[in-house]
Design a protein around this nucleic acid. Sequence first.
DNA 1: GCTAGCACTCTTTTATTCCGAGTGCTAATT
DNA 2: AATTAGCACTCGGAATAAAAGAGTGCTAGC
Lengths: 359, 359
Amino acid sequence: MELSDRKKRILTAVVESYIATAEPVGSKGLAGQIGCSSATIRNEMSELTAMGYLEQPHTSAGRIPSPAGYRLYVNELMERQKLSEAETAAINDKLTKKQQQIDQLMSEVGQLTSSMTQYPAYAMAVKPPAAIKRFDFIYVDANTFIVVALLTDNTVKNKLVHLPFSVHQEQVTTLSSLFNANFTGVTDSEITDSLIRSTERAAGDTYGLVAVVASFAMECLAAAKAAPLRVAGASQLLSQPEFRDPDKAHALMNFISDGSRLMSDLPAVAPEPNGLRVTIGPENLAEELKDSSVVMASYDAGDGMRGYIGVVGPTRMDYSSVAAKLSYIAAGLSRLLAGSDAPAGLDNKLVLKESERHE
Amino acid sequence: MELSDRKKRILTAVVESYIATAEPVGSKGLAGQIGCSSATIRNEMSELTAMGYLEQPHTSAGRIPSPAGYRLYVNELMERQKLSEAETAAINDKLTKKQQQIDQLMSEVGQLTSSMTQYPAYAMAVKPPAAIKRFDFIYVDANTFIVVALLTDNTVKNKLVHLPFSVHQEQVTTLSSLFNANFTGVTDSEITDSLIRSTERAAGDTYGLVAVVASFAMECLAAAKAAPLRVAGASQLLSQPEFRDPDKAHALMNFISDGSRLMSDLPAVAPEPNGLRVTIGPENLAEELKDSSVVMASYDAGDGMRGYIGVVGPTRMDYSSVAAKLSYIAAGLSRLLAGSDAPAGLDNKLVLKESERHE
DNA sequence: GCTAGCACTCTTTTATTCCGAGTGCTAATT
DNA sequence: AATTAGCACTCGGAATAAAAGAGTGCTAGC
């Protein structure tokens, strides 16, 4: 059933006032904004309550939005916000910095998101299964060589191998051709014991080194698969009045800080590529999030990699502003990481022009 | 002035009871433990108060230790604690895991420390100025090569360079000898514009690539200098009764989470190699820490690197247990990172035997 | 030098009252 | 038929008052 225009305006006003003040909203205050008497507002609010969009903490308090009310607000009522010039400038400035490591990038992005939104934020990246494209071996001295692996996602991993016995230059060369022949194009799960054993059989006098390099290869692929998750600004929670109760704050902060818990819950709210998703209160799967909301945006991190950034806050979150900021940051990241045709890891620069500002 | 034996026992009992319960300690409860009447205890406590070791929150409450009281307790009264078998096992288990990246190691160590002590913990590493020992260049294809740098601290850095124009194998070889001649043994501050310019003059047709590789070299050295600082378990604070006041909790958590703030304050409390240092309440420099205590241990991370782990908590911290745990973890890390003669970055394993357990 | 006893202090807890914001309903108005 | 004014009623929160309790400091006796 479609709401009357006036009901929509009232619901919007209630949501926005409650978001701003955290106080239940009474009929008198709204009368001015809506342009009719408080009695009329009362009637309307009473109906909105019956429909499930508003709730009353107790008989003689104002109304607050129910989860359904927030949902309606987010889906239909909320105005898309534009960021101010200062805000876009701050974001662009941060994103311009070159980043080498995906890990560190996630840290920075998390911090940026948190400081822009004033809520705890997280950033993560999901990678497609990788394989090793090529191996190189650098002979350093009789006891030392370096293995370098170039992965299909264009990251480069290396390892300094220090041996208790000595090797010749030629042995290292043998190793190189051995691994380039047997271990390239192989994914994580395809490195089996039998592959290692057959390589060892072909290894001749470099037999003893195969296991070392193979375990390095497995490490590389495992590291490439692991999705770094970074959480930033968890302490921001404490400035929200709904978390003045230290026990509540503690419970949620624990949940947020525990990467693995968060990780396992997030897929449920992951938005489609370049999308934005809001889950409100009880819509969240995790028990700890039933009184909180999550806003999450995804971006294209290039090379088939998908990145996510998100924000956790009370259901009374400033959805409009958070959505605008997340979208803008996510768009910036997509551009930074996938926008140019250079592989990740190079010094791509992002300069979003004013005209491209997210609307 | 030296305290009587009985005064020491009373002070110890007050400190330990207050650490355990967070409640001011009255004379009656102590009477049993000390073995004399409550009136005697009252007289003694009154003197301890006059001497500055105890404080009274208000006239009709028990006594709590003053910072000076904690100091005396930590310096002279506290018993060195032994860890339980389960605790040493848990620590050893965690430390056995091989770590490649210093960054990630700091994360893990921070989490371990926090979960063992139940306080927020941080871990950081301080590195000596590094230089590049040698460069290697791997030619991938006409537009792509990889630079690999082996640093004096035995870490290896790399970068995939993707070019908008094509290069020959020989040019890459030229680059290699060029950089090995001019940029090895050079520290951070010694890479000057004039060095880059003179290298460019010698570069012939690889002129345009010098800047790219030089900036990579600078990045490497800068990254090697930067001390990664990781904070873990900040939310543990909220379980401490002294932080039931959300504003206090917020202030301290902000401070703790802000790496740069923490970083600038820590040197003041850094203990000597393999030492342990406790700073209590007002002994801390940072205003935000005036009501908190910091326990910090250092370890030898090999290759001249020094590592620190520490714990932040209320002045009412369980010094004895925290000190024991930090020492044990720090000793384990020293052994893990510097104990074997293999360079950092290899798969050293740490297995502390029972007989070597920290006492 | 230690201890029992007691008056006194000061916080914490509990009970009670009061106040006001806000509602829901009814009757009057447009 | 929708809106508004008016009014009695509800209920949580602030304020006040009273009671309870824990602990001290002092004095006098052992």
